[in-house]
Amino acid sequence: MKFHSPTSFAEAVVLAQNSEGVLRYLAGGTDVLVQMRAGIVTPDELIDLKKIPGVFDITRTAEGGWTIGVGVSGAQLGAHAELCADWPGVVDGMELVGSTQVQGRATLVGNLCNGSPAADSVPGMVAAGATVSITGPEGDRILAIEDIPAGPGRTNLTKGEMITAINLPPRGENGGDCYLRFIPRTEMDIAVVGCAVNLRLDGDTITEARVSLGAVAPTVLLVQDAADAIIGTTLDDEAVANLMAAASAACNPISDKRGTIEFRTDVAGVLAKRAAKFAYARAKGEVIKGTHL
């Protein structure tokens, strides 16, 4: 296995383009090393992106959004008070990935590019309307988060392409988000179902909403029907019932060692309800802390 530590994305792109055999990028490494250990992936070339200047930066954009470098760990996100205040659902999602130790290394981009439909950080980013900046041999482009995963373990990035940063939109006024997942234990499991809700209020009425579900389909879903169920409502009982029904209806899960089709479909609705209520409360200005809601 060849190990590369480029000091610019341009250099990384050339290395990636010229690579032979199995290529993996190394950001936090918390998926790649596990796959190497289990013999699932034996890379011929490994490109460490962490020597590239700026990859550990969390930057406020001119518009009031955020740019997050590819090396930024969950621990770093969680320690960033302003970012946590803006996008608690996004940060919570990342902080639910693995243990405290894994948090010390794991990154948003790694969690996204691992391509798992159960990735905890992805629904929150999808609901937030986040995008990724991509560079590659053909130049730069920007894609929505939900357009990156192509299926379990696969992405829509082409050979030589890599993500250079995550872009979160400005939070704006009267907005709130929340990510919840269901796992059998209280920690350390892969999500059996995950759900993120991001919404904005005008008074008590929801004016904008995005609802995203994880682990209920081959990729993380953005569920327009679920958002429509609560837009224009005050999250009253009927709206909640419609939200639950829409979330469950969007599910196309499998039965596996972690859960059944029935369980995932049911609990998707339950989590949508609970996440929407927390997001709504946050939009109302309530400070609700903690990843284990």
């Binding site: 234990r185 209280t186 920690e187 350390m188 892969i190 596996d256 060692k257």
Partner: peptide, 27 residues
Amino acid sequence: NEEYIYDDKGRLQNPVFLDYRIPVASD
């Protein structure tokens, strides 16, 4: 939560602590 899970080929599906779920401190 703990169990041995075999697939239809008789292969163990959870030979890792990630999915062989022993209690953690927060449980």
